[in-house]
């Protein structure tokens, strides 16, 4: 017998994402899903971010990697709570993996939750985790052509951190071209050049986070 289903393939993921989103909203937690290719500097950016913001906000981190606790250990070394998810070969985090570790966080006492996705410029972009913001990290050594080559990622992220600008003098990365490519694919998104190593450009990123937290808190007052 033929059974008509008519369901989106990502139905189960989307249901879990809706559950996560509701929890984040009810507890006024700012949740940011950070995606990039391997080694673009996600963990380094998070380390520098936590070093500065730890006095202002209560921060939690979910680390997604194929294997090891290495990235979570780097975050824990700074005194922040980090939960590592190992995907064992899986190329992305999905909303059910996130839902499964949420009970480990105390959301009544958390302002920001960063989710560092598995290093991969393709697959993570297709999975909604329930976050309010998606941020991509692109690094100077990866080259100029990544934005047009991986449009699905950059079409779905509202902010692109262009990391490792301390290496610009040694490489032929064209920042203006990258800005133009991005505005062509996704006019509403923004490219923010920075260096997690030297700290250059980090202030604008931190400002963006502070604004995000303020927006979350304001919603709670107006409710």
């Amino acid at each position: 017998m033929k059974i008509t289903l008519e369901v989106d393939v990502l139905t189960n993921n989307n249901r879990a994402a809706a559950f996560n989103r509701q929890l984040f909203e009810e507890t006024n937690t700012l949740v940011i899903n950070i995606m990039s290719s391997p080694g673009a500097g996600k963990t380094t950016i998070l380390e520098k971010t936590i070093e500065t913001l730890a006095n202002e906000f209560r921060i939690g981190v979910i680390e997604g990697d194929l294997a090891t606790e290495k990235d979570a250990d780097r975050i824990r070394a700074l005194g922040a709570q980090a939960v590592q998810i190992n995907t064992h070969g899986g190329c992305h985090l999905d909303a059910r993996m996130i839902a499964a570790v949420l009970p480990q966080f105390d959301f009544q006492h958390l302002d920001i939750l960063f989710i560092e996705n598995v290093g991969n410029l393709v697959c993570p972009s297709g999975y909604d985790l329930g976050q309010q913001h998606k941020v991509a990290v692109l690094s100077v050594p990866e080259g100029n052509d990544k934005i047009p080559k991986y449009p699905t990622m950059f079409m779905r992220t509202e902010l692109v951190l262009l990391n490792k600008i301390d290496l610009l003098p040694y490489l032929d990365f064209d920042v203006e071209q990258a800005k133009e490519d991005l505005s062509c694919i996704h006019p509403q998104s923004k490219l923010l050049p920075l260096s997690a190593k030297t700290g250059e450009g980090m202030d604008e990123w931190l400002h963006w986070i502070r604004e995000g937290v303020a927006r979350c808190k304001k919603q709670s007052i107006s409710q």
Binding site: I3, L5, E6, V7, D8, V9
Partner: peptide, 10 residues
Amino acid sequence: TFRILAYEGS
């Protein structure tokens, strides 16, 4: 679109 339309089973 990426959907399951139907399946056939017994």
